[in-house]
Design a protein around this nucleic acid. Structure first.
Lengths: 206, 206, 206, 206
DNA sequence: CATGAATGAGCTTTCATTCAT
DNA sequence: GATGAATGAAAGCTCATTCAT
């Protein structure tokens, strides 16, 4: 899971403990500023200030502002992917409907946690591109999902598995993201998960 | 369909034909620059230049850069909404499955046409906010959809119509947007529409 | 005599009188700062300030700091070249020794006038490169000099004219530049010119 | 030959062998970077890195970046001066024309060797100033040259020896430097040396 | 009305230098 | 002594916006 874009990779790997702390402060500051005020408000000087670090230190570890965004995304993607992968593996044996409901619950919580990173950053930082299109599209997560589908293959009626995976995935993520973005909506987490799970199961099995 | 945010409304309503032409040039230039090079490349000076208009004139008709973006979104939303509304009305009488398939086809084509406006602009221009969350959320479109659902109420098994509308809508739009953004995907328009329609119908009726 | 390096050419040609005045102020300020304090002290902000112009205006007319230096050199080179060309033409008919003495006098005064531009700038601004190697190397000046030599060909004994031109030229310019740089030297202008002229004439004719 | 400018002198004289090695590494790194990429690319951090030394250590031996440049110039000047002095002494007894030709050949080779140091550094580092104006102006070299001229006083017709030394010196150095800087020139080393020697001898003796 | 010259706050980034470990 | 993390003044430059002509 090393950064795919060379110029965005960290400039210098922190060797001393102090340095690692500095890096963490910078990323923490960047995250909180972006969440609160958006990417444009997160100027490098502001990030450094909030991090309690000089602007010079910031540039010791990140070669550019975009590199900070990239690091944020990398971290979020790898954490979320791991959580999801474990969840899928843990629910391999359960009945399809139950497993899917659990998985959707986890996706809701991870996307809520990393909301701004998955939704805002990639669109605001051109160079990040498709780097993190979606947590669910990560390579080995893809394989895990495929395995999961294969595990339930006799229940699934959709013929083209590839398309089914694509549609099911974005059915889930699309609804969840819209739900998270629209804070005027009158639906509870539970209701949402129930409906999405319902839709997915029906789509795959009926 | 007047702009919801006061400060983003056009500064002066063009009354002469010449003035309307100027406004069109500006919006056209802005659109083409944003499509080609992204929102950041669309500086006001650059827009004015491409539009063949002085920067001073640009500010006669738009009070700020954001107002241009807002106008772009307004136009796209109102056009797309109208197209969709007509489509829904025209398919009111047809069987649910057939109607839904047709509607999804239209949504795919309008979102493809206004891709950048629906996907890029709202995220890059904070003030635009939820202004255009989705073409399908527009107020009277909402009513049209509700009418459509009501028209087929005896086929629909989902209890809470509100939630069903929400999920169905983002099921469609989420999948379509992901499809449009990912140009490495190996699915045809037809396959996509078929699957999405399949998922929606099953979700609503089984 | 248009700028040879595209990226250093002026960004926008001043159209109104006011604009031309601004450009002149900028170049004037840049020149005086560089003379007084060197190229490094000539920050763009400082230049703008001394010019009584905003930094934004400066960048309306010059795409970079280097472009300012380039403009300075262009101007100086073309003025000095013109002066020298006229001088050579005016002295075509005079005896070789007298003509050369006059020419060297003119070279001394032009190089004194544009001292910093010919000596400092090209070496401090890498991109300027050989742009202005020496005022005497300008293309059509080269031809003028060649004509001058040809005019006196029966007096000149040196065989290879090309090499003679090169050595004579740098004999003159090298001595003059060293003289101008070393302000602790106890030689008068007259003495210097006499000796250089003497050296050149002897070199070419004996 | 101690540095003339106090603040540029080495901070601490390396006493242990290891320390001397460190100093050599730093100077070597600085030199190679400047030659390859210019003075601006030679940042202190970069020099330290290439030298395989920590930035902290670099500042143990050099009080500033300029001090490194000064040391580079000092070394080059003293080496070149020594070579030239020996050459002049060795040719004291030979006929003037022959001696001068030999001396010019040596000047060409030393200036070629230390090209960047004599040509680039002093102009890029203001504080170095006239420190090293020219290798031939070094104090005791001056005396050696004067002795040489005196040795041939009956052949020299120029009256004012001081001026003659100045002009002859810069006649040589000016032509050589121009020759070294212009790599598009079609003159061989031999031709150049012949012509310069010719010019000097004629100037001094005819 | 249209023009385009002018503005300047504020951005990203560099790099010589210091000093706690 | 040696290390390298940290510093921060200051640089070059952009661009939305204004306003005299």
């Amino acid at each position: 899971m090393r950064p795919q874009i060379a110029e965005l990779s960290p400039r210098k790997v922190p060797q001393q403990q102090r340095a690692q702390f500095t890096v963490d402060c910078i990323l923490g500051a960047a995250e909180s500023i972006i969440i609160k005020s958006g990417y444009d408000a997160a100027t490098t000087n502001h990030i450094a200030e909030v991090a309690g670090v000089s602007i010079g230190s910031l540039y010791q570890y990140f070669s550019s502002k975009e590199a900070i965004a990239a690091a944020l995304v990398e971290n979020a993607v790898s954490k979320a992917t791991e959580v999801l992968r474990e969840c899928i593996l843990a629910n391999m044996g359960k009945p399809l409907a139950e497993a899917i409901r659990t998985i959707i619950t986890v996706i809701l919580s991870t996307r809520r946690e990393y909301n701004f990173i998955f939704m805002l950053l990639p669109r605001q930082v051109p160079k990040l591109g498709k780097l993190s299109r979606s947590v669910t599209t990560e390579k080995f997560l893809y394989n895990t999902i495929r395995t999961f589908y294969h595990h339930h293959r006799h229940e699934i009626v959709v013929e083209d598995l590839e398309i089914a995976m694509f549609v099911a995935q974005h059915l889930v993520v699309g609804s969840i993201d819209a739900y998270l973005e629209d804070n005027s909506i009158l639906i509870t987490d539970e209701q949402l998960v129930d409906h999405i799970a319902d839709a997915v199961v029906k789509y795959l099995t009926k």
